[in-house]
């Protein structure tokens, strides 16, 4: 089966006063109907790679790639009008903090209906039904009331579920989740993850799960990309993470505390210049 999304040698560059800043330097992967984790520290280019796929890198940033295909069709630097038709309807994204990613002066219902109506052309009434259905799907108990609520009136965990409902309403094939639980209380994280997992699985979607949390990704995803300094340094199945070969991945793993293997002092990650340019480990 051909992959949903295929990316080769993706680069994102920003001109700065002191020369080009290369945020993403040759990232490549294929995404099927699976949960793909992308792990890296802040500044490793994982967020920028996600935005490049959605065509959301604003000038003066520049996106280049050998290949960027959605369902076999190139989406690299498509004209904005054609890209708009893909965004939301075929690829969508959930961002970190619902406090900031929901429009504060629009009711939740209107925000959910907006994208759905744009891509399906449905009537207001049908869109309302769909929005309520989606709110129910993300396990919101009183959808009618939340529908008329403003974002500041809902809690963080509820906000993120609303965000998921909103982004999945037009039935996209791919969802990019950029640190979707980092801003949430630990107590509601698992709930949001479970909902996300169930919906993505039931719809047979591809999920790109961007996170800095190695353990979380290992539990939640099928496959993991480790990014460092704008490159993929290692790619491996999530269950084999403990067998990672790249010293950066090993370093990340060793710097995490483990209950089953307590140590006197946690190891400190030692970065090496060579990682920046070496070819990735594992299957590419």
């Amino acid at each position: 089966m051909s992959p949903l999304l295929s990316v080769r040698n993706l680069r994102v560059d920003f001109p700065t006063r002191s020369g080009m800043f290369e945020a993403v330097r040759g990232v490549g992967f294929d995404l099927g109907r699976e949960r793909l984790g992308v792990v890296g520290e802040s500044g490793s280019g994982k967020t920028m790679a996600g935005r490049a796929i959605l065509g959301l890198v604003r000038p003066p940033g520049k996106v280049t790639a050998e290949r960027m295909e959605l369902g076999g069709e190139s989406i690299l630097n498509l004209p904005e009008s054609r890209m708009r038709r893909l965004r939301g309807s075929r690829i969508s994204m959930v961002m970190q903090d619902p406090k900031f990613s929901l429009n504060p002066v629009m009711t939740v219902g209107r925000q959910i209906m907006e994208g759905y109506r744009l891509h399906t052309g449905e009537s207001r009434a049908a869109a309302r039904d769909k929005a309520l259905e989606m709110l129910r799907a993300v396990q919101i108990r009183d959808p009618e009331r939340v529908f008329d609520a403003y974002p500041h009136e809902v809690s963080g965990g509820m906000g993120q579920r609303i965000m998921i409902a909103m982004m999945l309403a037009p039935d996209p094939e791919i969802l990019i989740a950029d640190e979707p639980t980092s801003a949430l209380d630990v107590s509601v994280r698992n709930e949001v993850l479970r909902i996300l997992d169930r919906l993505v699985g039931a719809r047979g979607m591809g999920l790109i799960f961007i996170s800095h949390d190695l353990n979380l990704v290992a539990q939640f995803c099928d496959r993991v990309l480790i990014m460092y300094a704008g490159r993929v340094v290692e790619e491996l199945p999530a269950r084999d993470l403990h067998a990672a070969r790249h010293p950066y991945t090993q370093g990340l793993l060793n710097s995490l505390p483990r209950l089953d293997r307590p140590v006197e002092r946690l190891a400190v990650l030692r970065r090496q210049q060579g990682w920046r340019d070496a070819p990735p480990e594992g299957a590419a």
Binding site: L56, R84, R87, G88, M95, S101, L118
Partner: peptide, 14 residues
Amino acid sequence: AEYVVTARVKGLSE
């Protein structure tokens, strides 16, 4: 603001 990115992700026109 982030909600502007959200609006763009939805595929809304500029």
